[in-house]
Design a protein around this nucleic acid. Sequence first.
DNA 1: TTCAGTTGTTAACATTTAGTAAACATAAAA
DNA 2: TTTTATGTTTACTAAATGTTAACAACTGAA
Lengths: 217, 217
Amino acid sequence: MLTIKQSQLLNYLIKKIEDSGTSPSYEEICIHLNLKSKSGIHRIVQGLVERDYIIKLNNKARSIYPKKYPNGKIYSTLKQDQDNEEPNNINTLSIPLLGKIAAGLPIEAIETANENIEVPISFLGKGKCYALKVDGDSMIEAGILQDDIAIIDSERQPTNGDIVVALIDEEDVTLKRFRKNGESIALEPANINYKTYIYGPNRIKVQGVLTSLYRHY
Amino acid sequence: MLTIKQSQLLNYLIKKIEDSGTSPSYEEICIHLNLKSKSGIHRIVQGLVERDYIIKLNNKARSIYPKKYPNGKIYSTLKQDQDNEEPNNINTLSIPLLGKIAAGLPIEAIETANENIEVPISFLGKGKCYALKVDGDSMIEAGILQDDIAIIDSERQPTNGDIVVALIDEEDVTLKRFRKNGESIALEPANINYKTYIYGPNRIKVQGVLTSLYRHY
DNA sequence: TTCAGTTGTTAACATTTAGTAAACATAAAA
DNA sequence: TTTTATGTTTACTAAATGTTAACAACTGAA
């Protein structure tokens, strides 16, 4: 969170760059903020660097680059053409948190779950994502525990070795490691107490690929 | 459940942040709540921290972050409503990502790491947090794998069973399960190939408690 | 290359603003 | 009653800001 002055300076910086294409000199900032000394500017700039809101090159004139807006959104010079579908500009996204997968229900059936979870975009995959609360211990040896939150990319194509959410026979949903061998698909648990099952191609629908995982203690 | 005043304060905090982008000073809160003294504010803020409704940075001006709404819902500024108000993004905090712990270096020694990571506030503990890249496999049976990102609350007191970052003999830093027995402290790995070591009270300094964990595939 | 002007960096100090703490009083809740 | 939440005052510490001045690094022209 920025202080008042830091916020003012950052706003001016962004405006100046968008207007003129160059970052302002300390003098110019002084004038704009009604100060008499560059020195204070230096300190405020320092503060903004520490807080990760700007990047600057040392000992270089006019070399301050904004990294975030005062409100914390990632700064991007790329102007999304006015009609921006992609909120490319936000650090976090709210995605639906589906409950624990109840056996016997395809994902779609529980998409009603109206709980959401806040996730940094860096956690997400490229496609549409949803979150899932892990039920059971079948993937324990892969470091996936009961009640972990799994973030699933529903549009990604699985490759061998990926951990996927699979719908079996339009009935059961489970989290397993995916391995395709010719036409048949193996779903491997990561728990010595569970067996690998192999299915014909028509019996499995992959509902998404595990992208990231989050656990709260 | 919050008290009246706590609830009022939290509401004002949220409103102020959404309006102006910065959290209010204690003085400003006083005015808003019709009080004559900052001191009471301080106490109420403490209460909100204890109840885990906000996060604050100690001794920093204007650095209170809401974590939940008064009703207990996770705080999120992202409005998925149609009205595309510019969403703020203050529900994340940038915390330092320390490199892998090199054996032989206390945490402080690597705090120079100038990488930062954006984390949703709800992932954080109550105290000052930092992130750590896990090195090694000593906690593998607790589902903590190589290269996972661990988020550590550096101010929380460990209780038995917590997973902590421990500094041994001012030299080695490791992630282990903490167990105190009388005066001595046991650091238990979660890997059958490693042994539990027991130390005298003066040999161990706990550098923080594991709060949450994140893994990217 | 040298030199002068511009701009950024640092230290020192003063001032204001902001957060922390203890002590005491009061009122409401358990 | 005992506990908890609250209101207030006072005092203190720390952070943020404003200012001056000397100096270092960079730039472009002579």
